[in-house]
């Protein structure tokens, strides 16, 4: 990570016109290159040991799932440990093709919904958040309160009215009921998240830009958006995960098995009244976790960009 910190933009792009004479920004010290003392080294070792132990505990259940997916079905619940006597890939091959379509079909469906949702949330929520965080307008407090209210009502009671709404528009069994609400910033969680982040960005930057003659669209696009990359990355990752895992919405709105998303398809392995193919279920659960995990691995780089790397103030 030290390498990333070296490519810092200079502050004049942002804080040029500032009246107060502030401390010159410094690059965060690249600790990796510093020579550690012995005490420091053993402290670091301790830290790693604790982290690895804690991490191991954290993901033990997941490891068990991975191992189980490589076991024959009848052994899965007989062995709680992580030891594998043989490698059984059949759960993957049979699970992939057990349903009407190959499992990839459902992953593509999920991907469509996920991509639509991410774009929707990024655009609409950041716009609303900019207004709430930076602009003065009539009924601001009231609207902000209403926005928070919309998160507070348990979703079970709005399902039926919402379903009636979407079914009357003729959107049942399409992806629209899952995507359009995101395009319209109905996930107030993200609006609020971005509001909090924008409020953490020094206002002097806006003011400086405004003195330079920039209007709101320009300030929003050129200044605020680049500075809130961590918030945008957070939104992207969360939207991806939550939409990818969303069961209830997909269950209610997608009736045709061709349209099933991953969580709904996974339930098809579960038969409460008869035998469940646990091996296939675990195998496909892991397959469906892969994209999420990859997105997280890739996306987390953007979490650590942001103000820290621009070093303003």
């Amino acid at each position: 990570m030290t390498t990333k910190l070296e490519t810092l933009p200079t502050p004049e792009t942002a804080g040029a016109g500032k009246p107060t004479n502030r401390r010159k920004p410094k690059v965060r010290e690249s600790r990796g290159t510093l020579a550690f003392s012995k005490a420091q080294r053993s402290k670091a070792l301790m830290k790693h040991a604790i982290l690895i132990l804690a991490g191991g505990l954290m993901i033990y259940p997941l490891l068990w799932m991975v191992v189980s997916s490589l076991r024959p079905n009848e052994l899965i619940f007989r062995e709680p440990g992580l030891w594998l006597n043989s490698l059984e890939m059949s759960n993957y091959t049979s699970g992939w093709s057990a349903l009407t379509h190959p499992f990839g079909h459902y992953m593509i469906n999920s991907a469509i919904v996920v991509i639509g949702s991410i774009l929707g949330n990024l655009i609409s929520c950041s716009m609303a958040a900019y207004a709430f965080a930076r602009l003065q307008f009539t009924a601001k407090k009231l609207l902000f309160g209403i926005m928070l209210l919309t998160i507070m009502l348990p979703f079970h009671v709005v399902i039926v009215p919402q379903y009636i709404l979407f079914s009357q528009i003729g959107w049942v069994n399409t992806f629209w009921p899952l995507i359009v609400p995101k395009l319209l910033a109905t996930e107030a969680f993200f609006v609020f998240l971005m509001v909090q982040f924008i409020r953490g960005i020094p206002r002097e930057l806006d003011e400086a830009a405004r003195i330079d003659g920039a209007g709101h669209p320009r300030i929003f696009l050129r200044l605020i958006l680049p500075l809130m990359v961590p918030a945008l990355a957070t939104t992207t990752i969360f939207t991806f995960i939550w939409t990818w895992n969303d069961f209830f919405g997909a269950l209610i709105y997608l009736t045709d098995p061709d349209m099933f998303t991953v969580p709904v398809a996974l339930r098809a392995f579960v038969d409460s009244q008869s035998a469940t193919s646990w091996g296939s279920l675990f195998a496909m659960s892991i397959v469906s976790l892969l994209p999420v995990f990859l997105v997280f691995l890739f996306g987390q780089r953007f979490l650590i960009k942001g103000i820290a790397t621009t070093g303003i103030k």
Partner: peptide, 21 residues
């Protein structure tokens, strides 16, 4: 400017959220 920025959210609020609520 504020209401332009708020437009998508307002439309969603009125069309999708408030009614069912």
């Amino acid at each position: 400017a504020a209401y332009i920025f708020l437009l998508p959210w307002l439309v969603g609020l009125i069309a999708i959220t408030i009614g069912p609520m």
